[in-house]
């Protein structure tokens, strides 16, 4: 259903945006040395109280009206635990939410990472009002993609302009081939 790690990233970030986040930090590290895939997503959205935070990992809980089942987070937690890892969610009302997920890299059930370039592009361009900081790394390369820096360089030219979409597509194509 959620066939790669990028689907989970997209899903968690959609939750962050729905929670009013203006800044989202996404850390993804693939380490052969540590035999680990580590994903951490931190936002400054409205956060959740302790009770709600406990409930979002339950597949039969959702804050959305008219829908009783929120599957995104339970699916991610399930995948992490199947793959010999862990899932932690920390949240504070009015401050934001952080998910911290760990997978064993060589576990046979670990889904593929998926198309990270497309994921970064679609998230940053279709949420122009949100600032994203992506930190993608393996054992050798540490790649940073900071939309605040990009918007600063663009100086008023919108990040969702056709010219910028084209540029960022090529830029990610060139720089994000190590993972």
């Amino acid at each position: 259903m959620m066939d790669d790690i990028c689907a989970h990233i997209t899903d968690v970030v959609a939750n962050s945006v729905s929670a009013g986040a203006k800044k989202v930090f996404i850390f993804l590290e693939k380490s052969t040395i540590k035999n680990a895939l580590h994903l951490k997503i931190t936002d400054n959205g409205k956060g959740m109280d302790e009770e709600t935070a406990k409930k979002v990992v339950d597949p039969f809980f959702s804050t959305k009206t008219g829908r009783k089942v929120g599957l995104g987070i339970p699916l991610l937690k399930g995948t992490a635990e199947t793959c010999g890892g862990y899932f932690n969610l920390k949240s504070a009302l009015g401050e934001g939410t952080e998910i911290d997920v760990f997978f064993t890299l060589d576990h046979p059930d670990l889904p593929p990472i998926g198309n990270l370039k497309d994921t970064i592009l679609i998230l940053t361009v279709s949420n122009p009002e949100v600032d994203f900081l992506f930190n993608i790394k393996n054992d050798v390369i540490n790649f940073i993609f900071d939309t605040e820096e990009i918007k600063g360089l663009l100086d008023g030219v919108p990040i969702n302009s056709p010219e910028v979409i084209k540029f960022l597509t090529n830029y990610l194509d060139e720089h994000l081939n190590f993972i």
Partner: peptide
């Protein structure tokens, strides 16, 4: 995700300066 990427590709390729793509939840 594929749908969103295809829309962005078309906007960039056709230089559609007056079209904006955004996302929403369920």
């Amino acid at each position: 995700r594929d749908v969103l990427k295809a829309l962005l590709d078309e906007i960039a390729a056709r230089n559609l300066t007056d079209v904006m793509v955004t996302q929403t939840g369920e």
